[in-house]
Design a binder for these strands. Structure first.
Length: 559
RNA sequence: AGGGCUAUCGCCAAACGGUAAGGCACUGGACUCUGACUCCAGCAUUUCAAGGUUCGAAUCCUUGUAGCCCUGCCA
């Protein structure tokens, strides 16, 4: 069954709560169409959690024949960089979310936001406040006590208008004055206690440069951005639930037709994995990882470099579902998705990580023959390849035991196994060095048992991988494991992380089939559980292959 | 005068008063030129707890409990 079929099956079974809201809105004529958006602030790289939001918003737009907008929420020049704009767009493109010609910047709406603020002032719903940041905090009250009103709360409309214009014209220092919404200082919701909606910041903005020295706050800007773009369902994460009354207030006071509605869902966390922009940023800045695309991270760039496909991430996100319950998804689910996708499209090659020489004593010296191997038994369209076979080959050290444990059915003295794509061989002996370490394994082969010969007279329990000694390609391999936080994937109180010690292993060497013609470039590989490798590439989409022997080494056979 | 949100299997997650879907993980077994894949079987008499309403409750009511978020001129 294909991934698509599985997904379709799921769709039949249930709809998530956001889909239910949308369908009800469409039925009741609240909206004639639906429009969603993904609105990141360009202050870092995207990670797996953002993928959920992107794919959710894009998927919803597709499902209900609506539109999906890309929008940078760049209302705070102190944190944003153009560098991040580019990386974010590249990641979203890679994920396959298509914003068509609708790429927007909140900063392009600054004029409209400025005018909206004036509207509020004229309606007596906003005022310029001279209190300092500290004073505002003090006046705001606490979680259990109401706030008290600012002495500047009742300035006249005319005075507010003048003062706000002065703010815009740069007549005040940063922090000297702010514009506040006039709502309710006694509200149990702290966000409604006359929130600041405009602040002064003399700073060059990545997009608008020095045009403005006042910038709108998120709570004021976001509903306006959504309304301007005719967004219907403004989907965000749980921590904004408390902001929804303010969102609705802005949209109502500004009298937008068919106002957007905010819907919140739970963020995606991966169990024991460092998620969260803030934490990833710290790892990058502290040099604990090589960069934003370090394969041990779960940024989109890292997952791509590590070999995850857009399809696998899409499948993962859909499998996780959408709800309002805080949860942490098992990393095994992500691994399942990449296995599911790659097993159809990755060629299955052989490789030996820790080699031991196997000499087939009854095979003619100097003879080389080619055996034919299917590239992917589950996908015949991938064709076949020829592998040179000879008297001496490498096998995996772990595939030979002098004293086999119970139920071990690979090579040991007297036992016969299949060399994948080649012949049956029977182990006849072995050599060791002075320390007892096995250096060479001896065997004999049975010419009748060649792959493709149709030989069925007897069977073997084990099939092992091999590479020719002469023509194998030697490469350095890095086996990456997750950067795991033994606690919760979050920082400790003192700012440190509880990282595992073995977040990366480096293998000295790896012997690969000659099929890897571009092997000189292949100095780095990544390991995905159950034997999926990909070529580590910063510049292009990674090539994948499946090294099947790893499957048994890493996963199935537990001694 | 605090407010908001959430609790269903080890992990996600359906169920919308009619008798606990599905996926991941795990455990058996079959198959196998990859100990993989695939296949088949198993995996919540019970939904945070305790009461109540009802012929019938995960769903409604009451009272608790636990977790997450909120006191930026961040988003």
């Amino acid at each position: 069954m294909t991934m698509e079929n599985k997904m379709e099956e799921k769709d039949i079974v249930s709809k998530n709560f956001i889909e239910q809201i949308i369908e009800k809105d469409l039925e009741n004529g609240v909206y004639q169409h639906i429009q969603t958006r993904f609105p990141p602030e360009p202050n870092g790289y995207l990670h797996i959690g953002h993928a959920k939001s992107i794919l959710l918003n894009y998927g919803l737009a597709q499902k209900y024949h609506g539109k999906f907008n890309m929008r940078f929420d760049d209302t705070n020049p102190t944190k944003e960089k153009t560098e991040f704009v580019e990386s974010i767009l590249a990641d979203i493109r890679w994920l396959g979310a298509d914003w068509e010609d609708r790429l927007f910047f909140a900063s392009n709406y600054f004029q409209q936001m400025y005018e909206a603020a004036i509207t509020l002032i004229q309606k007596g719903k906003a005022y310029v406040c001279d209190l300092s940041a500290e004073e505002i905090r003090a006046y705001r009250g606490s979680l259990t006590e109401p706030g008290k009103e600012s002495p500047y709360r009742n300035r006249s409309v005319e005075e507010n208008l003048k003062l706000f214009e002065n703010m815009k014209n740069g007549e005040y220092e940063d922090g000297e004055k702010v514009l506040r919404a006039k709502i309710d200082m006694a509200s149990p919701n702290i966000n409604m206690r006359d929130p600041v909606i405009y602040r002064v910041a003399h700073m060059t903005h990545h997009n608008t440069k020095d045009t403005w020295c006042i910038y709108p706050m998120y709570d004021f800007a976001h509903p306006i951005e959504d309304a301007i773009e005719h967004i219907t369902h403004s989907i965000c994460t749980l921590e904004f639930e408390d902001h929804r009354p303010l969102y609705d207030w802005v949209v109502k006071e500004l009298e937008y037709k068919e106002p957007p509605k905010q819907i919140e869902f739970a963020k995606l966390y991966l169990t024991n994995v460092v998620t969260g922009k803030r934490y990833i940023k710290k790892l990058v800045e502290d040099g604990i990882v090589d960069g934003w695309d370090d394969p041990r991270l779960v940024t989109i760039a890292a997952l791509r470099r590590r070999g995850f496909t857009p399809e696998s991430i899409k499948m993962f996100v859909e499998l996780c579902g959408v709800s309002k319950a805080n949860s942490s998804v098992d990393y095994a689910m992500l691994e399942y998705c990449i296995r599911e996708d790659l097993k159809q499209k990755a060629p299955r090659y052989m490789a030996v990580l820790d080699p031991i020489k196997l000499v087939i004593d009854n095979y003619p010296e100097g003879k080389v023959e080619y055996v034919e191997a299917v590239n992917n038994p589950e996908n015949e369209a991938m064709g076949t390849r020829q592998i040179p076979f000879g008297r001496e080959i490498y096998i995996e050290r772990d595939d030979f035991r002098i004293e086999p444990p119970k139920k071990y059915f690979r090579l040991f003295p007297g036992n016969e196994v299949r060399l994948m794509h080649a012949y049956f061989v029977t182990c006849t002996g072995y050599e060791t060095d002075s320390e007892g370490k096995v250096t060479v394994v001896h065997a004999t082969y049975d010419p009748k048992t060649k792959c493709g010969s149709g030989f069925t007279e007897r069977k073997v329990k084990g099939t092992i991988h091999w590479v020719p000694t002469e023509t194998a390609i030697k490469a350095e391999v890095r086996l990456y494991e997750n950067l795991v936080d033994e606690e919760k994937g979050k920082l400790n109180e003192d700012g440190t992380l509880n990282l595992n010690e073995h977040s990366m292993q480096i293998m000295e060497s790896c012997y690969l089939e000659p099929a890897f013609s571009g092997a000189k470039a292949l100095d780095r590989f990544q390991f995905v559980r159950n034997g999926f490798f990909c070529i580590d590439s910063k510049d292009s989409a990674p090539d994948h292959m499946v090294l099947n022997r790893i499957v048994s080494l890493k996963s199935s056979f537990k001694l």
